[in-house]
Design a protein around this nucleic acid. Sequence first.
DNA 1: CTTCTAATAT
DNA 2: CATATTAGAA
Length: 364
Amino acid sequence: MGLNSPELNLDLSTFYVPKTISEFLTELSVIDDISEKSLKLNDYVHMLEDEMRKINGFKPQLPLCMLLLNDAIMRLKEETMHYKERDFRPVMEEFISLKGNSDEDGRTKMSSDCSDKKNWMNIAQLWSTNINRVTTKDSVLDIKARDEEENHSAIKNSFQLCSIGNKGGAFVPFRGQPSLATKEEKVVLPIHGPSIRAPVAEMGFTDLNLEGNAKIGCAPSLVTDQMMSEGKSEHQQQKKQRRCWSPELHGLFVNAIQQLGGARAIPKQIRELMQVDGLTNDEVKSHLQRYKLHIQKLPASSAYPSNGSWLARDQYGNVSMANIGHSCSPQAGSGKWVSITGCDSMEEEEDEKSESHSWKVQLH
DNA sequence: CTTCTAATAT
DNA sequence: CATATTAGAA
């Protein structure tokens, strides 16, 4: 379903100064023209969604922000739907593409039951904004997309919103901690055959499970039986599946690095902080290596004092926030690494051209 | 063929 | 854990 295009539509100089939702609604209520109402609503929602995308990479640090934004968006969309109901549909029908039973029977009871669902779906779009590199070449991938009607309230330090994007977590952690395997982890483990190591299944999209553990990985290439039964014996598949460092994953990584005080962070700590399950120390280590190489390669224009510490060796937590703010300014320097999800320049992730983009957002 | 990146070896 | 080397893909 078409993710609403950012702002190529209705950019007619309606340039909002940020208002609170209440103010906005009040203001909206004095407008007579339905289509104008819708227009403004639409615009506002877009702004919110845009905002959401910006902080998308920082979910772990800003769970409440996500929550608030979500809430606002939901609310406004409901509002929009109300207009839509009691009126011929305005200009924008591309806007909300509710699937299914919206037009027919949902009319009256929409606000209660149905809208919830739709809202959830809208959110789901936002959360998994991208990278569905469905590299399911041979993927068997029997995932059961169990949509959770029960929204568990936050467990641990989690942000339960993240569970929404759940497209089914068929992910076999390399050395999954048993404690993590909740009821949701419905994984088909094709352990036929003698001695093959645990098949590595990874997914092509970000998936955050209920614990708030981000499960971010790569294409699902379930090792099927043909692998061993056919000519090639049990050697050969020794090499591990390549971990794909998606922008989200990298975002988490960078965040962790920052919270740990920069490049000298220890891989183990990074991994723990990222809370990505299935991620191994080695992978983090390797990635860190590349990271270090890159940051020393590009001096980052030394916008900051002394040894080009593109990272304020600051206290925990606030670093990322500060960098978010900064990352949106076109200026170079420290923002380079953080801006992978940050800047307004990035509309939404393209399909596939984003392989290495995050490392050199600018320059070149 | 070169470069880039993740895996693996030291 | 850090660094070096190797393997694979673009």
